[in-house]
């Protein structure tokens, strides 16, 4: 009797759990669904009824609103793609190289170097932005992609991750036998170590790419020329009065800024979730 009562209770509780999870899932998805559907509806349709799950026929009309205004999704897309791809390549390659110096070699300053990496791990770009901007202004690199790409070479968090991954997986025997075969140190890194690190590099590449793609603060202060604007700066333009009544166009613009991220996420979500989980496991 008591057992039956308890199982009845637990079934009830399980149903409750599912209800909460489904509500949260709706909460996560609904804003994006509204955004996607409204991107295809006209502004007057949206004003009359803002929530609809039936796509409209105004996609092209909404798209034409962008003509001659500051929001230019294609320019933003290309600029963001250039910066994100280059910065990600820099982060991945040089972080692996830096991790390799920490794992494979015994050098005197290694401990101090690792401590330095741990110290700057947490410092965000925002708090040094004033000096960074003034410095770039003086050397004439405002409106250039260089200050958005080169700093990616020194990415402490990625170095830390790569080191943790490399410690157990890199066998020094392989490196030694390559040395005996007469391979140079740099060649050993490029041809033996890099391929071993592929899984870790892929995970870090996703996170580095997304973080660069989404960055707003530094690009916003450095890129003044419209032709150089990245996607998030384009998004920021939508707040302007020009778009006040163009509801459909604003939704479409938002869709265009996140479409590449949605594609990346739903193709790679398994790896992304696994990567996030790794971040929490200490050591």
């Amino acid at each position: 009797m008591a057992a039956r009562k308890r199982s009845g209770l637990s079934t009830g509780f399980t149903i409750f759990q599912y209800i909460i999870c489904i509500i949260l899932a709706i909460l996560s998805l609904l804003p994006f669904i509204i955004m996607l559907v409204n991107a295809t509806r006209s502004s007057s349709e949206i004003q009359a009824n803002a929530i609809s799950f039936i796509p409209g026929k105004s996609l092209l009309t909404n798209y034409k609103v962008f003509d001659g205004k500051s929001f230019n999704p294609w320019t933003g897309f290309i600029n963001s793609a250039i910066i994100s791809v280059c910065a990600t390549a820099c982060t991945i390659y040089f972080s692996t190289l830096t991790a390799y110096t920490l794992v494979a070699y015994d050098w005197k300053a290694k401990k101090a170097f690792f401590a330095l990496i741990m110290c700057v791990l947490m410092i965000p770009g925002q708090v040094t932005a004033i000096g960074f901007y003034q410095f770039m202004y003086k050397v004439g690199l405002v409106n250039s992609f260089i200050p958005l790409i080169l700093p990616a070479i020194a990415a402490p968090a990625t170095v830390f991750f790569m080191r943790q991954y490399m410690l157990p997986s890199l066998s020094m025997e392989i490196v030694q036998s390559a040395r005996i075969d007469g391979a140079g140190e740099f060649r050993i890194f490029n041809q033996i170590v890099l391929p071993l690190m592929k899984p870790a590099m892929a995970t870090q590449a996703i996170f580095s790419f997304v973080a660069t793609w989404n960055a707003l603060f530094i690009p916003l202060i450095l890129l003044i020329d419209r032709k150089k604007w990245t996607m998030p700066i384009m998004v920021a333009q939508l707040q302007g009065d020009m778009y006040k009544t163009e509801y459909g166009a604003v939704y479409l613009a938002l869709v265009m800024t996140v479409l590449p991220l949605f594609v990346v996420y739903f193709l790679l979500s398994k790896y992304i979730i696994a990567g996030v989980a790794l971040g929490g496991v200490k050591e």
Binding site: T101, W107, F113, L116, V127, G131, F135, P151, A154, E185
Partner: peptide, 30 residues
């Protein structure tokens, strides 16, 4: 092989000095 340790750490250190340490000190100076 210790010298390679230093050699391969150079890119990180140089970029760190130019793009992180210097702007931090410069911000403090401003």
């Amino acid at each position: 092989y210790a010298k390679y340790g230093y050699l391969f750490a150079i890119p990180f250190i140089v970029i760190f000095l130019i793009f992180q340490l210097y702007p931090t000190l410069y911000t403090a100076f401003i």
